[in-house]
Design a protein around this nucleic acid. Structure first.
Lengths: 191, 191
DNA sequence: CATTCATATTGAAGTGCTTCATTATTACCG
DNA sequence: CGGTAATAATGAAGCACTTCAATATGAATG
C-alpha cells in the first residue's frame, strides 16, 4: 500500500488496521509481543487495557487470516463463500442446500447463488433427493473434488507456516481462549 | 437462523461457520475447550490437527467479533469502515485523508467515499490544510465526537463482558499468540 | 383430501466495498 | 520556470453479499 501521501504531520503514522496499529511490535517484561502504537494510543485512557489489547490483536489476526484465505481463494477462482461450500461438501459429502445454509451460517438465497456459480464452473452439481423430492442436494463433481483437495493440501502447508514457532501447548491454549471468547460472545449476541 | 429445513439425513448437522462447526463444545483432558464437530471431521485425516483447530477457532472468534462490531456499528448508523475512520480521528485528532487510507489499510477512493458519507451525516468535516493546499484533513464535528465517544464507552463494556472468565495473564497470552501469528502471516504475505 | 408447512428458485433493490481511468490542484525539484 | 509527482475528487463498472417478496413444488398432517 502507500497510495498518496505520508506527510508525517501527525503523532506517528505507522499504523494500519481496525482501531489500532500493528506494524511495530515490541515485547513486554514477560517477553510477550504487543503493539507499540496501540499502547501509545491507549496510554492517556485510564482503563485496563489488557482486554482491549487482546481483542484488538485477535481482530487483527482474524482479519489477516481472512485476507490470506480470500487472496488464496481467488487465486483458485473462488470466493470465500464458494470455498466454504466446497470444503463443507468435501467433509460431509453431498448435502441438501438447506443444510448448507444452516451450517455455513448463511441464507437460502445466498446458497442458491453460490451453488449456481459453482455449478456454472463445473465444480458442483445438483442432484435430486429421492427421499424428499422438494429437496436438492449439492455434490462435488470429480473436477470439484480434485480442485478442493488440492486447495486443502496447499492450505494445510500455509497453516503450518503461519503457526511457526508455536508449541502444541500454545496452540491448544490459543484454541481454548478463542472458543471461550466465542462462547461468551454468543451469550452476548443472545443465541 | 434456521431457514428452511434441517432434515438430519447427514452425519451431524450441528454446524456453523467457516470450515468447521462450533456450537457443541467439549473439553479435552487438560480442561480446554474444543469443537466436537470439528474434531470429528478431522479424525479421518491423518494430520496433526492442533494447528488447524487453533486457526479455525481463531477465525471463528475473529468472525464473531467482527459480527458483533458490525451489528453494533449499524445500530449507530455506521459501517465498519466509517466506524474505523471515526475511531481513528478520535485517537489521532484531525488527519489528512491520505493518512487515513494508509492507517486503515484502505484506498484513497474508499476513504473519499467514507468521508463523504460521514460528512453527509454531520459527523466529520473536511478542513483545508494550510501547510499543504493539495491536502484535505478530516476532523470530527462536535456531534461526531460526542457520538464516537459514546460508542467507545459502550464498546468497552461489551469487551469486558466478552472476556469474562479470562485472567490478565490469559489475555496477555492471547495477545501474544495472535501477534506472533500476524507476524508470521505478514512474512507469508510478503510485506 | 385440503391445508399448511418445508424446500427451493427467482427477481429486484440496496450496501459496501474494489479496481481502473480521468481530471484538477498544488508541491517539489532541477 | 517547467516538468514531474503527490493529493485528492469523480465516474463507471463489478463483486459478493443482504433483505424482501413472490412463486412452484412436494411433504405432512389432521
Amino acid at each position: 500500500m502507500k497510495h498518496f501521501n505520508m506527510n508525517e504531520t501527525n503523532v506517528k503514522s505507522s499504523g494500519s488496521e481496525i482501531h489500532g496499529a500493528v506494524h511495530e511490535l515490541g515485547r513486554d517484561e514477560a517477553g510477550r509481543l504487543y503493539s507499540v502504537h496501540m499502547r501509545e494510543l491507549m496510554k492517556p485512557l485510564e482503563v485496563d487495557t489488557s482486554a482491549v489489547e487482546a481483542l484488538a490483536a485477535l481482530r487483527i489476526a482474524g482479519k489477516t487470516l481472512r485476507m490470506m484465505q480470500e487472496r488464496w481463494a481467488e487465486k483458485h477462482d473462488l470466493s470465500e463463500g464458494r470455498l466454504g461450500v466446497m470444503f463443507r461438501l468435501l467433509r460431509v459429502g453431498d448435502c441438501p442446500l438447506g443444510d448448507l445454509a444452516d451450517e455455513l451460517d448463511s441464507t437460502p438465497r445466498n446458497i442458491t447463488g453460490l451453488v449456481d456459480h459453482l455449478e456454472r464452473d463445473g465444480l458442483v452439481e445438483r442432484v435430486p433427493d429421492p427421499q424428499d423430492r422438494r429437496s436438492v442436494r449439492a455434490r462435488l463433481t470429480a473436477a470439484g473434488k480434485q480442485r478442493i483437495e488440492a486447495i486443502w493440501r496447499e492450505g494445510l502447508e500455509h497453516q503450518f507456516e503461519v503457526v511457526g514457532g508455536m508449541s502444541k501447548d500454545d496452540l491448544a491454549q490459543l484454541r481454548h481462549l478463542c472458543l471461550q471468547l466465542v462462547e461468551n460472545a454468543r451469550k452476548e449476541l443472545g443465541k
